[in-house]
Amino acid sequence: MPDIRHTAEGWLEEHGDHLYRFAMLRVRDPEVALDLVQETLLAAWQGRDRFRGSSSLRTWLVGILKHKITDHIRREIRDRELGKAVENDPSSMFFKADGSWNENQHAWKEDPEILCRNHQFRGVLEDCLERLPDKQQKVFMLREMAGEATDAVCKICNITPTHAHVLLHRARLALRKCLEINWLGKGNSS
């Protein structure tokens, strides 16, 4: 029987950062991400006989983690929807009754490559993401932060593509507005 301490330590050393990053990009919360990594390593240890070495150890571990993340997200969506009505349609905030924009839209001039390294911007972005309604936030994180394809997002969240597109559209409208107000300072222009 292999030494538990030695093996777990080795896995953590070798793959811990990768697993943690993979989880963080999808669930945002460091505590949750840490729990998911822990559950993954536990499950991997308990099922180590099933690892055949046909894939790399990392691929195998990430496969386990993916299942844990999917379970977590579905549980969250299910639990939070119990007590809550369907998320309301926020488009009346952005559009008049006739479907035209409420306010003039400005083009962003910021360079994405510079923005992504700006800590102040990243802070504002995190705040704006945090303010998104639960389901929008989850779908948006998976799609834009983790870079999952839309069909993968649908599978993880157990929703239809149309529903995903509606949620992503709402999230983008809200996020863009939030960033304009808090980062670009154009909130009241019209």
Partner: peptide
């Protein structure tokens, strides 16, 4: 703007 936001996330990743 949406495209810039999308690109920004790619860079952040």
């Amino acid at each position: 703007s949406l495209q810039r936001l999308h690109e920004t996330f790619e860079h952040i990743r």
